[in-house]
Design a protein around this nucleic acid. Structure first.
Lengths: 210, 210
DNA sequence: TTCGAAGTGGTACTCAGTACCGTACCGGAC
DNA sequence: GTCCGGTACGGTACTGAGTACCACTTCGAA
């Protein structure tokens, strides 16, 4: 970023970028599993040890930029006005989700590669879930600080993630479709006037042996 | 289960049970990371190779019984009457979630150990997410077959999982509290009469630079 | 009893991830 | 410019997960 950054830090950032770039090139060429950390280190012209100094494990490099995005989002969310009810919290989170979509799809090509990697590697999907769970936790804490009850704070971020996940599933890796699909999912939440468990199910005629 | 099962199958089932039992004992004693597959194999009195023949990897053994539960649930869900609207789908899923809670907490001790492992090992939490994602996918397919639109089918299971996750977060590993917390989360969905993104957020006074 | 099929466990390998250590380099003080 | 302390680097060596292969045993059916 800054030109007036200590040389040491600039070198670090450069090394980091080289590693990410090398890794994505290789993953794109051969897929995640067929690339070894040694391969990445060689192409990035760093030592194998150095790779692990920058990234905790091989998967981490796939999510290297999500980290910053998520932190920026939770930062902005923290600054929002107080909320107490579920609907209000979700209205805020709808905006957060919209921003998240925009950030993630900003570089369409990168997003597509990223999605392809997730599609082809279950263990990367797992790892992505960790990021989202972490985001949920942060948002939950923020909501608590801003007046929400424990129940609302626990539920709202999970619901927002659900909308995001549903949109993601429907978009199926297409960065053009994602934002609309996610927003539509939020809009659908309005249809939930009365979700009465036993009543509705009984009324629908099934599951009598509860 | 059956007494009149071919010897070969009985042996297999026995080996499987021995492995699971040995693994949980060891995990309970030393934690997940400090137990090697070789340790498990030795205590279970099988070869290391055999372990991997029964379980794809070390993590899989932690979720060995979830598999059956999830399949039974999706089986029952498939047999439910048709639904088209989101509220109806969620009413059905509320019952599924309730059953899931009951199944998971049936053996309180096992549940507690399981939760402890998840709490202490992020990579196991990741893996648990995979199971839930898989369940979502199955439920989504079921809903599609029973008349739901693509949007409803994608969103409803994700919302149900969100309620489950929120309940789980609030219950914090206590099998007594879990069912009530999950059910309360479903009940809360009724509060979502109007989740109007820009309107509600604008009205709340924040995020003007959208 | 015999034969084929399937399961078992051992050996040997690759690769992820960790610990350790000598070396090179940056940044500040003189 | 030079020296020095701290920090990052890369190399070596190790453990453990997961895979491939293979000889051996055992079950079940003819």
């Amino acid at each position: 970023m800054s030109e007036r950054m200590p040389l040491r830090l600039r070198k670090q950032q450069r090394a980091r970028e080289q590693i990410v770039e090398a890794a994505f090139e290789l993953f794109d060429e051969r897929g995640f599993a067929a690339v070894t950390v040694t391969d990445i280190a060689e192409r990035a012209e760093v030592g194998r040890t150095t790779f692990f100094r920058y990234f905790g494990d091989k998967q981490e490099v796939v999510f290297s930029d999500e980290q910053a995005i998520v932190e920026a989002l939770s930062e902005r969310h923290r600054a929002l006005p107080p909320v107490t009810d579920l609907a209000g919290a979700l209205a805020q989170l709808r905006v957060v989700a919209t921003e998240l979509c925009r950030e993630l799809t900003a570089d369409g090509e990168h997003y597509r590669t990223h999605e392809r990697l997730l599609r082809e590697n279950p263990e990367l999907r797992d790892r992505a879930a960790r990021k989202f769970a972490r985001l949920c936790q942060i948002l939950r804490a923020n909501l608590l600080e801003r007046g929400a009850s424990a129940e609302v704070a626990a539920l709202a971020p999970q619901l927002a993630m659900a909308c995001f996940a549903a949109g993601n599933a429907l978009a199926d890796g297409d960065p053009e479709v994602l934002p609309g699909a996610v927003d539509a999912a939020f809009a659908r939440l309005g249809e939930l006037g009365a979700v009465d468990g036993a009543g509705a199910v009984g009324g629908a005629g099934g599951v009598e042996e509860l």
